[in-house]
């Protein structure tokens, strides 16, 4: 089917083709690079957010610098990084200052074993600031008395992070992880602008765009989009289940937990009463 012209009913043919073609699901494998990137991105964001939510010299300037890339247009970022990675340009020059020799440096975009990492790098650079700001916002809402109490109990900074900060901001962490994973599945701008999807960097979205607009197979591309939607649904549901498991100790996520807790309290009161009644005899 093209954008213009007659329509013909083809049933599920396009959906079957999506699964038959190699390029569609091969492209989805590239999302693993981006998922790996999002792990790095979120840990970096969480780490910096924790540091920056306490008193740091020039904290606001750092926050500004790190958030700034998110405000730049994705296409512009693409062009910036195209030159950044060009042989002998910005990145190579900086590395040469650090003592690397140009001959030992890889071709960041030509070498098919690393070019996807280069692209993921741009995406991390762009989005970690936004994650960080979300984290800072959440960390700010933690009651500072908790830190004080923890300090009195002799908890070190890491324990504070593990037992106070992470449980308090887990909703935001879940949200960020879901957004990043969904984003990894639908990565588009870096490969499209920097390498135009060539040289083994064509993600699912780029392949979809190519099929819809160059090859004019709009029907097939639409089927690909629906398949991606279903994949994202499934992945999101899995993540929800995963987090339920990971955070099972803090029960707020689970509506039945409150009921259980109430029952437990009632039980213990009854036991107490029984005990005191027994003791009274």
């Amino acid at each position: 089917m093209k954008y213009i012209g007659d329509r013909k009913f083809v049933g599920l043919k396009n959906y079957i083709k999506v699964f038959q073609r190699d390029d569609c699901f091969d492209a989805l494998k590239l999302s693993l690079y981006y998922m790996l990137g999002s792990v790095v991105q979120l840990s970096l964001a969480l780490y910096l957010a924790t540091i920056l939510s306490f008193k740091v010299k020039g904290g606001n300037i750092f926050k500004g610098f790190m958030f700034f890339p998110f405000l730049i247009n994705g296409i512009a970022i693409g062009f910036i990084f195209k030159f950044f990675y060009t042989r002998g340009f910005v990145f190579d020059t900086v590395l040469q200052w650090c003592g690397f020799k140009l001959d030992n440096l890889p071709y960041w975009l030509r070498d098919q074993s690393i070019n996807n990492f280069s692209l993921v790098g741009t995406s991390v650079w762009r989005y970690f600031g936004q994650n960080m700001v979300l984290f800072i916002g959440a960390i700010m809402s933690v009651d500072s008395e908790l830190y004080e109490a923890a300090m009195l109990d002799g908890a070190n900074k890491f324990q504070q992070f593990k037992y106070i900060i992470v449980p308090s901001i887990k909703t935001i962490i879940t949200l960020n992880v879901i957004l990043s994973i969904t984003g990894s599945l639908s990565a588009f701008e870096p490969p499209y602008v920097i390498t135009s999807g060539a040289n083994g960097t064509g993600t699912y979205f780029v392949v979809m765009h190519e099929i819809a607009h160059t090859q004019q197979k709009v029907g097939l591309a639409s089927a690909m989009a629906i398949v991606l939607l279903l994949i994202i649904f499934i992945v999101t549901i899995f993540q929800k289940l995963f987090f339920k498991y990971v955070f099972k100790n803090s029960e707020d996520e689970d509506p039945r937990a409150e009921v259980r807790r109430q029952r437990a309290i009632k039980r213990s009161i009854k036991r107490q009463q029984r005990l005191s009644a027994a003791g009274g005899k």
Partner: peptide
């Protein structure tokens, strides 16, 4: 034919020629 074969001669089928460069160079 261009659309069905996805080779798109003279119609934006750039990736098929890029593939030649990649294959030749690597």
């Amino acid at each position: 034919m261009n659309s069905e074969s996805e080779l798109s001669f003279n119609a934006g089928g750039n990736d098929k020629v890029q593939r030649i460069v990649e294959a030749g160079a690597t």
